[in-house]
Amino acid sequence: MSIDLKTIKHISKLSRISVDEKKAEKLAGDLNSIFNFIEKLNELKTENVEPLTSVAETTLKLRADEVKSKNLREQVIKNSPKENEDYFVVPKVIE
């Protein structure tokens, strides 16, 4: 299989990472060599194999639904790139 520039543009859109032509060409080359290497998995028959989603063979523990941390607004906002005392600020979305 081969990943073309159109596919790169599509993945770039899904990933929310902008790429220019030069970067797209470089990425296509890199991804093709990586996927050539990954394709090795197709040698294996896996129809009857259960997928492994977690190596930890335990069931998740249940806990009471309690509020344990309170009044964190200041901490949550503290690292936001645009200063505003109460909210996260983003470019205007609605006209």
């Binding site: 990933s15 929310r16 990472i17 902008s18 790429v19 949550v76 690292n79 936001s80 790139p81 645009k82 996260f88 983003v90 470019p91 205007k92 979305v93």
Partner: peptide, 24 residues
Amino acid sequence: YDGVKYGFRAEGENLIDMYEKTRS
């Protein structure tokens, strides 16, 4: 890492542009 809650942000013309430039 979307440039909204923490970390680096690149300015963009709109929200999507901001996301894409920030991550790029």
